[in-house]
Amino acid sequence: MPPFGRSSRKDTPFPAFRTRETGFNLGAMLRYALHRLFSLTLSLMGASVVIFLVIEVIPGDSATFMLGLNATPETVAALREDLGLGGSLWERYWAWASGMVRGDFGTSYTYRVPVSDLVLDRLWVSLPLALYALSLSALIAFPVGLVAAAGRGTAADYGIMGATQLGIAVPNFWFAMLLVLIFAVNLQWFSAGGFPGWEHPGAAMKALTLPAIALALPQASILARVMRSAVLETLDQDYIRTARARGLSHRQAVLRHALRNALIPVLTIIGLQFSFLLAGAIIIENVFFLPGLGRLIFQGITQRDLVVVESVTMLLVFAVILVTFLVDLAYAAVDPRIRQT
């Protein structure tokens, strides 16, 4: 076909990039991942400096607090040395930060055990709980949001919108207590609280079920709304009309073309929700007597156990940044345009 082969080559905007942008390019993906990793590492370093300085400027150090009002200055000084509170600001930061990198989080003043042990114990509760709640949230929100969007303006849409409004408005501790009342007290299907440990995985999962549901309800409501509006927005796009002109039904056009494009805002919200669930479950942890990270940091603050506070905060920052990185990778997997930046 000589006439067209010739003419079309002319409107190629950047002939030099043609091969590079062809299809799913692992090199481009890797370059993008490294690029993101680099900037996130910088944020992590920045955050560590801020956390360290904030803890430093809080008046009254741990040594004074632990020894009480009647301690002599000599004992306080000795304990300070013991706790590693001596030395210049820079030395202390370096000792703390390098310890973190090695996995040495210091020793808790109150519990007198390595903070890493404390955190690890709690993480085994908080992390599964967060993942459990997030999976529930996504499992509910995806189909619900999609149904609402596909039937915009129908009874189903109004029903779902009303229900999600309620889900956001209801305080989750109240909902948690309601769950306890129904499923633990009346029906006796679940225990009302506590955590048996992972030696019995079935029992552990069972103990996390009610808290996970309580946590997932507002998250699922938010996510379903985001999902709905994201799908609706893509439904107005020209490529949906093109797909319809190609012979797709409305439903096929939604599933094949709108869904993946709608995923980008949804992924953003999922990332934010995970970070929140990891540390923000403190109220739910209290309702169900779960030994989670939220309770650990709360106890650390009330007992002025600054090493614990510092380390857990840093760990949470790390978790948020890690999740951001994973969300960034997910963006790139979904959207080819992001891979080349």
Partner: peptide, 24 residues
């Protein structure tokens, strides 16, 4: 190939193409 895009392959995403190529 018939519409004159034989040289760019089928794996290209729309954002890498000009308006004329997309119409093709």
């Amino acid at each position: 190939h018939r519409v004159g895009l034989g040289h760019i392959g089928t794996e290209v995403y729309p954002h890498a193409l000009s308006g004329g190529q997309r119409q093709r």
